[in-house]
Structures are given as structure tokens and as C-alpha cells.
């Protein structure tokens, strides 16, 4: 049997050529559906319309925080809890404000009592304060979000407009995302037992409103807008200031940008 099919001359026999052709075709048949599906998905995402004509593929959101403008009033924390039904107990925060006090002996005092929902108290440390400031914190909506990477079931995901969302319906509550978040921005909702975090008020931004924290900030320390479009307050913020992000060495590519940054901020 072997002898019958074996090529009699060296070089490519017609059988072998047709075999190679079939082989190439079957490989193509294996790969092409994958490419087609991926392309199809890309097209679908482009055509995706949410609510009243909001196209996520046309946007890219980010937030700028000007530390030198923050007065630590905590109105953002309050507004966030009210807007998003975050439990009022002082353990669950989508956003919070930290106070940094760097003392003349080199020590750094950081606090955020109750997330600063009722602002801060003017308790004076014993040492002289060298410099001091407030830092608002929230989910950094990372482009390379570690939480999205580790979610075992696809309950945490990045939308085409760059916002990281949680599907409470699908979340199994394993809390791997909470462990993976370098910024402490996630928590387990005590009632739903699913992961929660800042959504940039996704339900507001798709309707053209600013996130609640931005709406409630009295000093415009929070700037919200498109990262890429030219006429955006955020683009101006990025143009006019020296920008830093939190923990850049982790390569999470945050889309929450700070100016007036200090090396003690973590």
C-alpha cells in the first residue's frame, strides 16, 4: 500500500502538491473563522449604540485631578454615595479624599476619616507641618486594568470608551479583582455580595452629564472629559499641566491624571 502512493520521482509530485494544497486550505479553514469573528466583533462594537444614540466607540473618557485646587470638603464623596447608592457606612467607597501632612521630621501622616465624607478636622500634629494637601482618589479606569485581567468569569470588563465596569449579575464574588487592584478602589457590596467600584457614573456620561463627583466639586479640582478630542476640558488640563498618574511602574495605564502631585502620594 505504501509503495502504491509513494512518489516515484523526487520533487513535488501532483499528489503531494494537491495534499499540500488541501493542508493549506484546511489550516486556512481553521484560522479564517477566527479572523472573521474578530472582525465581525470589531464592526459590531463600532455600531454599538447604548440608550439614546450614545456610541461608545466614538468616545474615550478620562479624569483630571488638580491637587492644588482640592479643599478636602468631601462633597464628591457625599455626591458619589448619593448618586450611586453606595452604603453610607464608612467602609465602602467609590471615591474618597486623602489628606497628606508631611512633617518637618520627615514623617508623613495620611488620613481619610470616613473617606472624608464630612471633610476633615483641624487636629494639629505635634511636629511642624512642612507641606500638606488633599488627594481625591477613585478608580483609575486603567487601560491595562489588572481587575479585568484577573476576573475569572468576565464580570469585569473595559467598555470601548475606556471605562471599566462590573456586571453584578455575572459576578461570582471571588474578590480576586479586589486583590488585584493596586489602588484599593474596589470593594464587595455588603448586600449584593458582588464587586463594586467607580463607573465614572456611566449612566450619566452616556446621557451627556458629568459624573456626580465632578458636578459636586466646588473648586473644579476634578476635570472630566474626552482624552482624545481637541475641545475637551481634559485635553486642556493635559496640555497645561505637568501630569502624573498613580503607581506608573505597575504599567496599569491609568486614565485618571493628577497634577500638583507629590512623591508621598500612593
Amino acid at each position: 500500500m505504501m509503495n502504491k502512493t509513494a512518489p516515484s520521482v523526487t520533487g513535488t509530485s501532483p499528489q503531494r502538491r494537491s495534499f499540500l494544497k488541501t493542508l493549506a486550505l484546511s489550516f486556512a479553514a481553521l484560522i479564517i473563522p477566527g479572523i472573521v469573528v474578530a472582525r465581525d466583533k470589531l464592526d459590531k462594537v463600532k455600531d454599538w449604540v447604548i440608550g439614546d444614540g450614545y456610541r461608545p466607540a466614538d468616545h474615550r473618557w478620562g479624569m483630571g485631578l488638580d491637587i492644588s485646587k482640592c479643599i478636602g470638603c468631601g462633597r464628591c464623596v457625599d455626591a458619589c454615595k448619593k448618586e450611586n447608592n453606595v452604603p453610607l457606612e464608612p467602609f465602602f467607597f467609590r471615591t474618597w479624599v486623602e489628606r497628606y501632612r508631611i512633617l518637618s521630621n520627615g514623617e508623613t501622616l495620611i488620613d481619610s476619616p470616613g473617606g472624608a465624607i464630612n471633610s476633615f478636622r483641624a487636629d494639629a500634629p505635634e511636629e511642624t507641618v512642612l507641606r500638606s494637601f488633599f488627594v481625591p482618589k477613585l478608580c483609575n479606569q486603567c487601560e491595562h486594568a489588572p481587575c479585568v485581567q484577573v476576573c475569572p468569569v468576565g464580570a469585569t470588563f473595559s467598555t470601548p470608551d475606556g471605562v471599566v465596569l462590573v456586571d453584578a449579575e455575572h459576578c461570582v464574588g471571588c474578590r480576586y479583582c479586589i486583590q488585584a487592584c493596586p489602588y484599593g478602589a474596589r470593594f464587595l457590596h455588603p448586600e449584593t455580595r458582588t464587586a463594586e467600584k467607580c463607573t465614572f457614573c456611566y449612566h450619566r456620561i452616556v446621557k451627556g452629564l458629568a459624573p456626580a463627583c465632578v458636578e459636586a466639586c466646588p473648586t473644579q479640582a476634578r476635570v472630566f472629559g474626552e482624552v482624545e478630542k481637541k475641545a475637551s476640558p481634559l485635553v486642556r488640563f493635559l496640555r497645561m499641566n505637568k501630569i502624573a498618574v498613580l503607581k506608573p511602574f505597575l504599567n496599569t495605564k491609568p486614565q485618571v491624571y493628577y497634577t500638583g502631585f507629590d512623591m508621598e502620594v500612593r
Binding site: 455626591a79 468576565g154 465596569l165 455575572h170 456611566y202 446621557k207 452629564l209 456626580a212
Partner: peptide, 27 residues
């Protein structure tokens, strides 16, 4: 869920559910 993986590795209708959240701050 039927719409899982439609746009990516997630449930597409989850976004609709999130967007349906009532607004408190009118702007």
C-alpha cells in the same frame, strides 16, 4: 447568557443595566 461575548468577553446587556441606573444629580 445569550449576549455574552457579543462585543467582548462580557455580557452586553450588563451595560444596558448599568446605564438604566436612576440619576440623582440633575446637573
Amino acid at each position: 447568557p445569550a449576549d455574552f461575548g457579543k462585543y467582548g468577553h462580557y455580557r452586553a446587556s450588563a451595560v444596558d443595566e448599568i446605564v438604566a441606573q436612576p440619576i440623582q444629580y440633575a446637573g
